[in-house]
Design a protein around this nucleic acid. Structure first.
Lengths: 149, 149
DNA sequence: AATATAAAGGTCAGTTAAGGTCAATAACTT
DNA sequence: AAGTTATTGACCTTAACTGACCTTTATATT
């Protein structure tokens, strides 16, 4: 069994015993497992992605922590589906279309839609290459959806 | 819970029980909390900034005090204030503080706040320089606010 | 009135305590 | 052999906290 798997097990156990919220101190946790602290980041980055329904929050400095939250999506599987449909790149017109379709299906409200359109507007990315713009838009779009519910 | 959080709680309690005005004697207050007097300044400086809608007044010498006043914004004034306050660069922690401030003043709803937090999360900007990240966040943040109403 | 002293609050650099990133390497898989 | 996944450590950023020293103000003394 990989160290990575051990970490995954430990986090999952925390998640299920703590109502979907695992709160850890990175150093202490790494020490208990017996690995480098940075491996905790590797595991979180590779196994607890947004598209899998997880949210990760953290704070540095004194009293710092990492929090992993498992989302209950229920009937909003549509969200997961859309998050998966959006790959690593998203252009403005497709992003607009997605927002409009979410709106017309009443998954999001008009005010939410407006914010999303603002966030993904190409105006925000002036000066960047198109490839970078689309990559960022994809990350931002998925992040908004994942955080939204 | 950090000492800083204890101080924040104590100040917030004073603010809400005293009609938006917290009046303290620094030494006495620090003594009650159990910290160095200068930590009070640290907390005020980092949590009760003018940009977040607070005014801080103080007097030294005998009978000295520190007064923290929570500004009351009318309607869209807070919105205007925030758009003005955000320059060409915005780091994650300040952006979070601004969103929370909009939320607590009921200028935006919780679901709007979540979308904004998702859109401005540093996770979206991995691989970029800090300077570019903050520049983009500023553009996105202002764009969301501008579209929002 | 001028001066000295005491009683506040302010500042800032330095310390400690976290978590984040990334490139290099090792260990699997196919 | 090539490609993917795991693992690490050196270096970075952020946050909390403190104490030595500074400035301001009020009050007591001469």
């Amino acid at each position: 069994m990989n160290v990575t798997d051990v970490i995954v097990c430990a986090i999952n156990e925390l998640l299920s015993s703590c109502d979907g919220e695992a709160l850890i101190n990175r150093n202490e946790f790494a020490n208990k497992i017996g690995c480098a602290p940075s491996q905790i980041n590797y595991v979180i980055g590779s196994r607890y992605k947004q598209e899998l329904g997880y949210l990760v929050q953290s704070k540095r400095g004194g009293g710092g922590y990492i929090k992993i939250i498992k989302r209950q999506f229920k009937e909003n599987d549509l969200l997961i589906h859309i998050i998966n449909v959006v790959g690593e790149s998203l252009d403005e017109s497709f992003s607009k279309a997605l927002v409009n379709s979410l709106l017309s299906e009443n998954v999001i409200s008009i005010s939410q839609a407006k914010i999303m359109l603002g966030a993904t507007s190409s105006q925000n990315f002036k000066g960047l290459s198109l490839a970078l713009e689309c990559k960022l838009r994809s990350a931002i779009f998925k992040s908004m959806l994942a955080n939204c519910f």
